[in-house]
Amino acid sequence: MERVPILKIGDILIVSIQVDLEDQSVLTLQEDLAEAVVKHAARGVIIDISVVEIVDSFIGRMLATIAGMSRMLDAQTVVVGMRPAVAITLVELGLNLGGVRTALNLEKGIALLDHVRSAAR
């Protein structure tokens, strides 16, 4: 089973999904991330899906779950790098990502997190 590495920069955790994930790896990532948020007292989580070729309902639900879970643990989540074909497919599939924040790339994602946090102060 593939395990997705979680990187830490300051109080932000960055996850870049580089492989075609099977369902068990997705569940493991959720758990690993929840633990990492608490362990590092992270305030933000960025999930980079720029090389992910498809997001089906299972992966979509993972993204919404991670966002909800992070919120409970006082961290904000931003999904970055969604491919245009993936966005078109998600809309037709009818998947509502449950208020997951998105940004076009990593840089914009970090800027969004900074903005959200300064607004909350």
């Binding site: 070729e53 498809i54 997001v55 089906d56 299972f58 245009p84 074909a85 078109i88 497919t89 599939l93």
Partner: peptide, 17 residues
């Protein structure tokens, strides 16, 4: 096309699951 590839692969993933 890339969009149609993405759609059929996503449908395949849903139906296989």
């Amino acid at each position: 096309s890339l969009v149609d590839q993405t759609k059929v692969v996503t449908a395949a993933s849903e139906l296989a699951r």
